[in-house]
Amino acid sequence: MTLVQTNPTIGDEQDRPVNLWRDAWHRLKRNKLAIFGLGIIVLLAFVAIFGPYLTPYDFLSQDLQARNQAPSLSHLFGTDDLGRDVFSRVVYGSRTAFLVAIVVTAIALSIGTALGAVAGFFGDPYDRVIMWLTDMTMSVPNLLLVVVINASLKTPIARWMEAQYMATLNPFYRETIWIDFLLVFGSMALISWPPYARLVRAQVLSIRSRPYITAAMALGLSNRIIMMRYVVPNALGPLIVAVSAGLGTAMVLESAFSFLGVGVNPPTPSWGNMISDGLRVWQHYPHLLAAPAAVLGLASVAFSFLGDGLNDALNPRGTK
């Protein structure tokens, strides 16, 4: 740290407000991999949002005369065993992937941030209870938990929905897709929040002991303001990195669950269940496996690159 000797009443530097976020953006721009990742993510997000306008076919329309076709100009990624356009299905799969990734990460982040912040800021006994809960959740095998939740809750909820439909004739209760979403989102969020809680707790603990927090207390500011204006902004950097990585992880996780048959159920396209279907026939029709797998891999790598780039960009004192 150098003391810049300037006459305090003159101050001759230019009056550019240097923002820490803007600095981070400048550093991020220099990282080619991160920008590559960001580009892929933006592209995938664009495809997911405008999917219905981009797909040449409906993802459900079957053409039994054109089954298992190799990629061609009319079917970019070929067709599957029911003659459905794989490209259209991959595009729709990206909607599922982004929906799951965003919703699950948002829920997990909310739970994790709230619990972690309380644990870090208020200390024992909250800390002890919350960390105990966190450790317990982390110690349960993820797949097992999701399978158990799906296996035990799916039927009762479906039965309840059916009964509601019979009673009210509200078509909402016929949409079994909501059960899928509820169970997938719920169970994935349930296993995804502990890392966020731990990260936020560690951040808050380290920030809480900084002198500027003592200074804020000495100013007589309320705990809420200290939390929102002093602790959270300073804890945000690592959290953004974790969220970027978490979005990719959630996509992969959803695919893994779909692959195992506990994720989003067919016919809703998901990269995971497409991979699962493709795997059975990959020796004859490799494109059915390759297309969704490649896109999933690309998305995962893109989030990972962006996360790494953000990590470096938000740490000005890093080695790079």
Partner: peptide
């Protein structure tokens, strides 16, 4: 606290870097 204020030793760490 309004009436009773404090100026700390280290001016580097007592200001919130994000404000």
């Amino acid at each position: 606290r309004r009436d009773l204020q404090i100026v700390f030793q280290d001016p580097y760490s007592t200001l919130n870097p994000r404000m």
